[in-house]
């Protein structure tokens, strides 16, 4: 088995670069995204949440709360579908963090660290591929909504709504990536993330109108960043309105990514 190796002498690279350039960084990130895609194909269980949640939560909330909150199921859907989408992608973004932790526990990350590759690529690649999961969840929830009577009136703006929610989930996944890199087990990531996200999704304008809340809670719900995202999606999808909440959400998303992406990469490199 050594025959072929003898005929191929060691190569001392003609040029040695001291740093990774932006083009290489992009190429490495895309390669890592390709790797994540290969893994996604081989691990169907990673699709379970994004395939089941749209059906489960849409039906459950629509028929359970529709009558009580909005008078009828159909009247509840314009408010509900954006909320279900946001709740879904936020939870799916947590899975990104837990999977990163599990992935890092396998030996292959030792090899990535020993390769002359961009340090950000293993994280950025994984996060990039997970936007596919967010997209599937978003589109599927919208379809389920339309199936049971949602008629979004925003026209083409619904595409913008989808993109906005995917971008926000991607930004948010940097938080979980940081948690994933620093936490000891995938279970820890899951536990801490749920502790943060459960109150954040429910103490918002997602499922009930904020007017019905006590004063102190209404303030919390209205300041909740997820409320801004949900409002932005509702306005875009239902009315085609490009409101202030879209701006706030974009600002928030960019801000989160700007803070947490460098932190996550730094934590990853410290481990490296």
């Amino acid at each position: 088995m050594s025959a072929i190796i003898e005929t191929q002498p060691a190569v001392f690279p003609a040029q040695l670069s001291r740093h990774v350039g932006p083009r290489e960084t992009l190429s490495h990130t895309l390669t890592m995204a390709y790797r994540a895609l290969l893994r996604l194909r081989r691990t169907p269980e990673q699709w379970a949440d994004v395939l089941v949640m749209p059906f489960l939560f849409t039906f459950m909330f629509a028929y359970l709360f529709g009558g009580a909150i909005a008078g009828s199921v159909t009247d509840y859907l314009p408010a509900l579908i954006p909320a279900i989408i946001v709740q879904g992608v936020v939870q799916a973004s947590v899975v990104t963090g837990t999977q990163l932790r599990e992935d890092m526990d396998t030996g292959v990350f030792d090899r990535f660290r020993s390769l002359p590759m961009a340090r950000i690529a293993p994280l950025a690649g994984a996060l990039l591929t997970d936007t596919i999961r967010y997209a599937v969840l978003t589109v599927l929830t919208m379809l389920v909504g339309v199936m049971i009577g949602w008629r979004p009136g925003g026209g083409g703006a619904i595409v913008l709504a989808g993109l906005l929610v995917i971008l926000t989930a991607w930004s948010l996944s940097w938080c979980w990536a940081l948690l994933g890199v620093t936490a000891r087990t995938a279970g820890t990531v899951q536990g801490i993330a749920m502790l943060i996200m459960m109150p954040l999704t429910f103490l918002s304008n997602a499922f009930v109108p904020t007017q019905t809340l006590p004063d102190w809670l209404r303030v919390v719900a209205e300041w909740n960043p997820l409320s801004h995202l949900i409002t932005a999606i509702r306005e875009l999808a239902n009315d085609g309105v490009f409101g202030a909440d879209v701006g706030w959400t974009l600002l928030g998303a960019v801000g989160i990514a700007a803070i947490f992406a460098p932190l996550a990469v730094r934590a990853y490199m410290r481990k490296a």
């Binding site: 790797r35 030792d110 002359p116």
Partner: peptide, 30 residues
């Protein structure tokens, strides 16, 4: 890192994907 190859005590390869897919990913990264 451009001058070395490392083979660890525990195999640093991706368990979930195939042998050739491993090689493609590492080759692309190089």
């Amino acid at each position: 890192r451009q001058l070395i190859g490392v083979t660890g005590q525990y195999a640093s390869v991706d368990e979930k994907v195939s042998g050739i897919e491993n090689m493609i990913v590492f080759g692309r990264l190089l």
